Computed example of a mutant assay.
Amino acid sequence: MRSDGSALNLRRWWRSAGFAWAGVRQVYRSQANFRIEVWAGAVALALALALRVPLPPILLCCALVLSLELLNTAVEAVVDLASPEVHPLAKVAKDAAAAAVLVASIGAALVGLVVLGPALWQLF
């Protein structure tokens, strides 16, 4: 598709944002892991607000995990399109994309422990 001018064009930005939100909606509808991660992030953010702990690390971790899950879904779709039959390299691509989500999720859980843990511990 050809560019229709300046990146500062508001109409162009809204159109691009519409495509992006369509992707988020599609992935939310079709991917159980994404739905789980969205709700886990919502719980983490609610806890951070309730416990009055710093929000930026929690927000950043949520954004990272959700972004990587979106990319993982995109990689899987492209690999399935390009290689409908089983192929060792297709497996590598899919496994590596899934591993990126796993690494980010573990990191997010550790950040959650460090940021939310002490405040939760004080409640008990």
Rank of each mutant, 00 (worst) to 15 (best):
A50Q: 14
R25C: 14
C62H: 03
L8W: 12
A93T: 01
S30K: 05
A98L: 01
L66S: 01
L59A: 07
A96Q: 03
L70W: 01
L55S: 05
G117R: 05
W121Y: 08
V101Y: 02
L123K: 10
V103T: 00
G18W: 09
D80P: 04
G117A: 06
F19K: 13
L49C: 08
M1T: 09
K94F: 06
A77S: 09
F124R: 10
A42G: 09
P57D: 03
I106T: 00
V86P: 06
I58M: 06
V114G: 04
R29T: 05
V24K: 03
Q122D: 14
R2M: 15
P54A: 10
D4R: 15
R2Y: 06
A119Y: 07
L60T: 05
G117N: 12
R29K: 11
M1L: 12
S105H: 01
L51W: 13
A20P: 00
Q31W: 05
P57G: 00
L81I: 03
D80G: 15
A74G: 10
L120W: 01
L110I: 03
S105R: 02
R12S: 13
L64D: 00
L89I: 12
N72W: 00
N72P: 03
W121H: 13
A40Y: 10
A63F: 07
L110C: 12
F34L: 15
V92F: 06
S83K: 11
F34E: 11
W121V: 09
V101C: 06
L81Q: 12
V79C: 07
L45V: 08
L55D: 09
I106W: 02
P84F: 07
A40N: 09
K94G: 02
S6M: 14
Q31M: 02
L59K: 06
R11Q: 15
N72I: 03
A104N: 00
K94R: 15
L120I: 11
R25H: 05
A44F: 05
A96V: 01
G41N: 07
S105C: 00
F124H: 08
